[in-house]
Amino acid sequence: MSDQRDELTAAEVEGFEGPASSRTMWHQPADTQGRVSIGGSRAEVAAGQISRLAATARAGERIGSKEDLRKLCGFSVGTMNEAIKLAQARGVITSRPGPGGGIFACDPSPLSRMNGWFRAAADDESAFAEAVQIRDAIAPLLVEEVLRQMTLADQQALEERLWEVRRARNSQAVSDFIWAGWALHEYIAGIGKRQLLDTLYLSIMDVGTSYLRAVLEATEPDVHLNGLAQVLEDLVDALNRCDTDAAVDALRRTDPTMILSPPPNSPL
């Protein structure tokens, strides 16, 4: 795969608040079939590594010079400069020039720590598993709120988004399929009126999508879209029928990484 990660500037990445599966961050080259080439920023990856290093240090502790971190992370000087700016903007490090200077860990606010955790979770399997556990715990709250607020217009909008999932599945357009699945979950979250709950839900779903991006980029596996597509069908059907238990069950079965393995009892 071609390396396209440097195409976004640090400022663009810092201001980007969309899902990992947005069309800005996903690319599907015409010369590949059933594969995804992941776009994004090397600076974002390096900033995540710096954040993880800072998280292991005490507040005010020196974690190294800029050159130390560059060698450790294996990125270019320009990429590391952008990464340090990102990490500073997120409140996880400070940079001091001159003798005795370097990069120092900060003690960010709880909100900054949470944001840093989400940003650094993309390629972390344990973070993905933790996110799934939290998503499963809040699923009943989310479904209850959605069913309380959902209108006939919302039902129609969900069917339209489900149609996009079907279209992408039938054409085996992997990036379009992931995008369509994200759009469906984004709309579901938007039906509710509890901003904290909805934002937490979408952030957790984005961890799964980000982790999927990392796996696809690293291994380029074959993909199997039918299983996840059926789960999304079940979710919308349950919401339309106002079946709380079935909707919670479908939501808990929603796992973006399902596309990496064939469904049980299906031919390989």
Results as ranks from 00 to 15, higher is better:
L8P: 06
A105E: 05
P267K: 13
R35W: 12
R194W: 04
A59R: 10
G74Y: 10
P264W: 08
R161D: 05
L225P: 11
W117G: 07
F118R: 15
I204F: 09
L235S: 01
D237W: 10
G98A: 11
A105Q: 06
L197T: 04
R35C: 04
I84P: 00
Q155L: 02
Q156L: 01
R166N: 02
T254M: 08
W163F: 09
P140S: 04
G208W: 04
K71A: 14
I178Y: 07
Q49I: 05
P19A: 10
I204H: 06
R52M: 08
A238C: 06
F16R: 08
R252T: 03
T209C: 00
I134D: 07
T219E: 11
A218T: 01
E160V: 02
L152G: 02
A11S: 15
K85D: 04
G60N: 10
T9R: 14
S126T: 12
L141I: 00
I178A: 14
D198F: 02
E7H: 15
D222Q: 15
K66C: 06
M25R: 15
P263I: 08
F128A: 07
C73I: 13
A59N: 07
F75I: 03
T24L: 15
S126H: 12
M150Q: 13
Q155H: 01
F128H: 11
G91E: 03
A180L: 12
A87L: 02
A47L: 01
T199A: 13
L251N: 09
H224P: 06
E44P: 00
A121W: 10
P262Y: 11
Q88I: 03
A250Y: 10
R90Q: 08
R35K: 15
L200D: 05
S65H: 08
A246I: 09
R96L: 11
R241Q: 15
T151P: 06
P108K: 08
P19I: 00
V92C: 09
N265M: 14
L111K: 14
N170P: 00
Y211W: 04
I38E: 12
D6V: 03
E17D: 07
L228S: 09
A89G: 04
P97Y: 06
E12W: 09
R241D: 15
Q172P: 01
H27N: 12
A121N: 08
Y187I: 02
G181R: 09
A43P: 04
L162R: 13
S266E: 14
R113T: 06
F118T: 05
R213I: 00
Q195R: 12
R96N: 05
G78S: 01
E217F: 01
T151N: 12
A247Y: 09
F128V: 02
R23I: 04
E82R: 01
W26Q: 11
P97F: 04
D237P: 00
L162Q: 10
Q156T: 03
D249T: 12
L111G: 03
R52K: 15
R90F: 00
G116D: 08
I134R: 15
T257K: 14
V77G: 00
Q33L: 07
A83D: 00
L86K: 03
L162C: 04
T32G: 03
A238K: 07
A55L: 06
V77H: 06
R241G: 06
